[in-house]
């Protein structure tokens, strides 16, 4: 199970790499087409804006897996082993609750947008269900990851080594 879940996390991070490359290529393409040929795309701004949501949330679980989210560990480092484990449990529970609520309400948001056929009022007209759907998926993965953090803290399983943000 854990392996499958980690696979999902890596998959959505891998999607992020593609997203980043897509952004560079399409934004340059759009601007050059506009400048040289007066033929910009109708979709670049719209899709790339929604991809920012992807960058923000779809990689969050993977970053949490390696405990690489930005945090201040100054005080918790001063605590004993037991205290550290207890805080890990508490923080994990906060994480499950917050991410769970975000996923649940994000799902309702996406469902409603689909149900009512909400679209961007542009010529490209992206159906809003697609960008909204990233919230339940991303926060859903994150909620599961926090739950695993809690479990690991209770059972005493060590977290995966903290990989600092740039040394992946």
């Amino acid at each position: 199970m854990r392996k499958i879940f980690e696979g999902l996390e890596r998959l959505s991070r891998g999607g992020g790499e593609i997203v980043l490359a897509f952004m560079v290529v399409t934004i340059c393409y759009d601007a050059i087409m506009r400048y040289l040929f007066t033929a910009p795309t109708s979709w670049s701004l719209e899709i790339n804006t929604f991809l920012i949501i992807y960058v923000a949330i779809m990689t969050a679980a993977d970053v949490q897996r390696t405990d690489s989210h930005i945090r201040i560990s100054f005080f918790s480092d001063m605590m004993g082993k037991g205290g550290q484990r207890a805080t890990r449990v508490v923080i994990g529970l906060f994480g499950v609750a917050f991410s769970g609520i975000m996923a649940w309400r994000g799902y309702l948001m996406a469902f409603q947008a689909w149900d009512y056929g909400e679209r961007v009022s542009s010529s490209f007209g992206t159906p809003m269900v697609f960008p909204y759907a990233m919230i339940p998926i991303g926060f859903g993965l994150l909620a599961v990851r926090f739950a695993l953090n809690v479990l690991d803290a209770i059972t005493g399983r060590n977290q995966d080594d903290r990989e600092d943000l740039q040394n992946v």
């Binding site: 506009r34 007066t38 670049s44 701004l45 719209e46």
Partner: peptide, 8 residues
């Protein structure tokens, strides 16, 4: 015949 541009 114009190009419709979308910018923020």
């Amino acid at each position: 015949g114009a190009a419709a541009v979308r910018i923020p």
